[in-house]
């Protein structure tokens, strides 16, 4: 385990026909870290994961895991994955699934340990089809860990789960993080990435638009939307520090900014008659948009 990086995408571009899924993506997974790949649906997260799993062929660029091709036999033996799939066959029991997946790996974890790690003790005798959604995801999580992997991919592990169940699964993943395994998880919940990851890579429309510690990313996406009726022009506010985007919507001026206090002060200075003012937190989409703006427009921040 002496590789500086456990897995890497270098200059990867991936297309499905005319649709570009990834464009010039560089992604590095460091040893022992939990990396969250954050992005909205269609951002290219799953494509990136499958390139690293070797289940998609690399079109342009390079993908390596443990310094080898992602589908090399030695790589498969040291890697685990939890994919966005509807599940394993309904008619086999939890322990049968675990028994089968353990058989795939040369040095599997003990079945009892896996049950404990995934928090599914006591349901091992039940058929997969009879389990709840959360239990199924935990089983899939256990299957990902069967081979005692050095690298685990969790592709949207909590998608479709309700909040409570999702938080329960976070507990298992967080405990797993303490085991020191390198983990790549994809999510479109910033909150999930924040709760689980050491580092976040933000993907948007196939590009890495941000990368950093969760606190950094969080602050950069903590945008607010300021809305009011004023005679201040769109251009005039564009130069205010923190403003990401400004536009006119009907009578309203709408400004997206990371520093709403400074903006509001500036607006009142220029137009004491402004009215109908609202300041709201922007959604994740807008946060990504903010990041996109930064990445799309390389010129100095206005």
């Amino acid at each position: 385990m002496s590789e500086p990086d456990i897995a890497r995408l270098s200059g990867v571009t991936h297309r499905y026909g005319s649709v570009v899924a990834l464009e010039e993506v560089d992604l590095e997974v460091r040893r022992g870290e939990v990396l969250a790949v954050l992005g909205p649906n269609g951002a290219g997260k799953t494509t990136a994961i499958h390139l690293l799993l070797g289940s998609l062929p690399v079109q342009t660029g390079k993908a390596t895991v443990f310094g080898q091709r992602p589908d090399a036999p030695g790589v498969r033996a040291r890697r685990g994955a939890m994919l966005q799939i509807s599940g394993v066959p309904d008619t086999l029991t939890v322990s049968e699934h675990i028994d089968l997946f353990r058989a795939y790996y040369p040095t599997p974890l003990a079945a009892a340990d896996l049950l404990a790690m995934a928090g599914i003790e006591g349901i091992e005798g039940r058929r997969f089809g009879k389990l709840s959604g959360g239990q199924k995801q935990r089983v899939m999580f256990a299957l990902a860990l069967c081979g005692d992997p050095h690298l685990v991919f969790l592709d949207e592990p909590t998608a479709g789960l309700d909040v409570e169940v999702r938080r329960g699964l976070w507990e298992e993943i967080r405990r797993h993080r303490e085991s020191g395994r390198t983990t790549v998880l994809t999510t479109h919940y910033l909150e999930e990435a924040d709760a689980l990851a050491d580092r976040i890579v933000v993907l948007h429309r196939g590009r890495v638009i941000a990368e950093g510690a969760p606190s950094t990313i969080k602050s950069r996406t903590a945008a607010r939307r300021v809305r009011c009726v004023t005679r201040v022009t769109v251009d005039a506010v564009a130069s205010v520090p923190g403003v990401v985007r400004s536009e006119t919507r009907g009578q309203h001026l709408e400004v997206l900014t990371s520093r709403p206090e400074a903006l509001v002060r500036e607006l009142f200075d220029r137009d004491p008659d402004l009215h109908d003012l609202t300041v709201v937190g922007a959604g994740l989409e807008e946060a990504f948009l903010a990041l996109t703006r930064e990445s799309d427009e390389p010129e100095p921040v206005r």
């Binding site: 799939i85 509807s86 394993v88 795939y104 081979g147």
Partner: peptide
């Protein structure tokens, strides 16, 4: 059906 459910894809990522 196993291809649709994704089991086949999952198994292909393992050493099976």
């Amino acid at each position: 059906m196993e291809r649709d459910s994704g089991v086949l894809l999952l198994k292909r990522t393992t050493p099976m």
